[in-house]
Design a protein around this nucleic acid. Structure first.
Length: 263
DNA sequence: ATGGTTGAGTGTCAA
């Protein structure tokens, strides 16, 4: 089974590229982030014509996650238990669509769009850390209660865990994505027993390049998209790819697909 | 030059 994650940055803008990529790469399950549409706006037909069913969660124009799969999605879960809504002090919290889980051929997958954080100290930064903490609490329970379940968290974590995951760490002083708090939140998943099944096969390489300032031509990118698998998942992984070529050509997303094959 | 790009949607906000 070939599974992948991709922050598509608007599925309506990218549908031709994404469906073409799915067919060309023979991918069975794609976890998407930043679909940027509500349920009635999703371009279902183009996926269905290619043999993929859609399982999505979208509430506004900013975020939203989905699966496209040639395998039926079972036990679909919208968000995770206790997933925080975003709320500034004195304002009502707003629910956000950033997580969807489903089981495919017995493999439990999550498509996750971790909050960006914006700036250190910003309410969105605290929201990001809280969101990750709540997620880790859930994952710890899942792994404990079903230790034999192949499980993977897939998505845009908006964290660069290593200094080498950005083009120049000195340029990131005082910025989000590289703070000790965010890196600790990322490492928490490893302490629970998940492993980065791509890093152990592909030590170097970015998954995201900003549209601005010629970041891609200069290869000034960031590694912020990950597939973290439980031991029963990780032991089934046979290969991994970061599809850097998908950042090229007409109207690409600013992120590229990250792919693994499992037995 | 203190900007530079893209997307949602038509105001700017978000990344």
């Amino acid at each position: 089974m070939r599974i992948a994650t991709h922050n598509v940055n608007s599925i309506r803008t990218r549908v031709d590229r994404v469906v073409s990529w799915l067919e060309r790469t023979n991918t069975d399950v794609l976890a998407m982030q930043e679909i940027k549409c509500k349920p009635d706006q999703f371009p279902y037909k183009q996926f269905e014509d290619a043999g993929y069913q859609i399982t999505m969660h979208g509430l506004n124009q900013w975020n939203g996650v989905a699966f496209a799969s040639r395998i039926p999605a079972e036990d679909v879960e919208i968000g995770f238990s206790g997933m925080p809504a975003f709320g500034k002090e004195g304002k009502e919290a707003v629910e956000e669509a950033r997580a969807i889980g489903a089981t495919f051929n017995g493999v439990r997958l999550w498509s996750l769009y971790v909050p960006n954080g914006r700036e250190i100290g910003d309410p969105h930064f605290h929201y990001k850390l809280d969101w990750l903490d709540r997620l880790a609490g859930n994952v710890a329970e899942w792994v404990e209660h079903e230790p034999d379940q192949p499980l993977a968290l897939m998505g845009d974590f908006n964290i660069a865990p290593l200094d080498t995951d950005v083009w120049n760490i000195d340029d990131f002083a005082g910025l989000t994505h590289v703070t000790p708090e965010e890196r600790q939140a990322f490492e928490a998943f490893e302490q629970i027993g998940l492993q980065d099944v791509v890093r152990e096969r592909i030590p170097d390489g970015y998954t995201y390049w900003d549209y601005q300032q010629l970041r891609f031509p200069r290869n000034e990118g960031m590694r912020i998209d990950f597939i973290l698998g439980s031991e029963p998942f990780a032991s089934r992984v046979t290969s991994a790819v970061i599809d850097r070529d998908e950042r090229k050509g007409e109207a690409p997303s600013d992120h590229v697909p990250v792919v693994v094959d499992i037995d």
